[in-house]
Design a protein around this nucleic acid. Sequence first.
DNA 1: GACAAGATCCCCT
DNA 2: GGGGATCTTGTCA
Length: 199
Amino acid sequence: MKLPATFYRGSDVVSIARELIGKYLFTNIDGVLTGGRVVETEAYAHINDQACHSHLGRFTKRTRIMYEPGGVAYVYLIYGRYALFNIITNEAGKADAVLIRGLEPVEGIAEMQLRRGLSTVSTKLTAGPGLLTQALGINTSHYGNDVTGNLIWLEDRGDAVPPEQIRASPRVGIDYAGADAALPWRFRLEGSKWTSPAK
DNA sequence: GACAAGATCCCCT
DNA sequence: GGGGATCTTGTCA
């Protein structure tokens, strides 16, 4: 069952990031179905979060998509190398986002290996925000894409994760955010080896 | 127009 | 475990 746009329009981005653990992310790019189970996310809030690109209402060429109603993709390039995939949440003008950081491969594994240049299946396939975008074929051309469409979408397959199996911890790589770097807004599926390697 | 830094990953030691 | 790759973006002049 595909997650509807209303799923992403809720006002609490932290709850949405938590609820996305155990859901499934798919792409159908270049005519190939690839995807996996979401095992790691991070929440970024428009208000009171120095780590968020839309912090202090920053509205630029890069962040403008964040101000759309929830349910669109925010894809950007980091370190000149890796595309990172976020889902915009909340209503229009409230620029919250959830970063997808780790996937457990499910569908189209051979194609994902090809895109990643790997001859074997290992956590190098999709365990990391810059890796899973490569595996799924997501790049900056998908900026602003509808995540309830036929190219990129998420599904609930009925296998919900019990709350006690979701671990919260501080977010990764945002030391510049001062006190907000300590917020426990990173969520992981306990015991999954497909979460990103950092701390 | 110039410059510093980044929500990362890979390879080498 | 540590450093370099690599280029877009935001900020300031």
